[in-house]
């Protein structure tokens, strides 16, 4: 019994550590995807301005509160607008942004294939 008990404790500790490392990872990931609004073209992660430092803390707190990555993004979007997100969301405004490169790729492929058909 005692053995199992100790094992359980160790397991929880290990598990906790694992979770913590995971949290830091998501924290960094989120910070990398945010623009530091008062800097010139830096991400929140890269910046050491007061704003960025506070924002990193907020992200950390929100993760500990159990918010998901998406929830944190939408929270910050509500506070600061879309300008803060480096990864533009797919909506009416960014429709072309995401689709146009793919269209160009397909068009290029079509032109190349057409050349071979014309030859025949």
């Amino acid at each position: 019994m005692k053995f199992i008990h100790i094992f359980l404790i160790i397991a929880t500790i290990l598990n906790f550590n694992f979770l913590k490392a995971d949290e830091i990872k998501t924290e960094n990931k989120i910070a990398k995807n945010l623009r530091c609004l008062i800097c010139q073209g830096q991400s929140v992660y890269d910046s050491d301005s007061e704003f960025a430092i506070s924002l990193k803390l907020v992200i950390k707190n929100k993760i500990q509160e159990g918010l998901s990555e998406e929830q944190i993004y939408s929270f910050l979007k509500m506070k600061y607008g879309e300008w803060i997100l480096y990864d533009p969301v797919f909506n009416r405004n960014t429709y072309f942004l995401w689709v146009l490169p793919i269209l160009i790729f397909l068009a290029g492929g079509a032109i190349i294939i057409k050349r071979f058909y014309n030859k025949k």
């Binding site: 995807n33 607008g81 879309e82 300008w83 480096y86 990864d87 405004n93 960014t94 942004l97 490169p101």
Partner: peptide, 24 residues
């Protein structure tokens, strides 16, 4: 090209500011 100039277009046309960054 699109990633770089799209925000300029969008801002002029719709007055929305977006950022296009590394994840894109």
């Amino acid at each position: 090209l699109i990633g770089t100039i799209y925000p300029i277009f969008l801002e002029v046309i719709t007055a929305n500011k977006i950022s296009v960054g590394p994840p894109f």
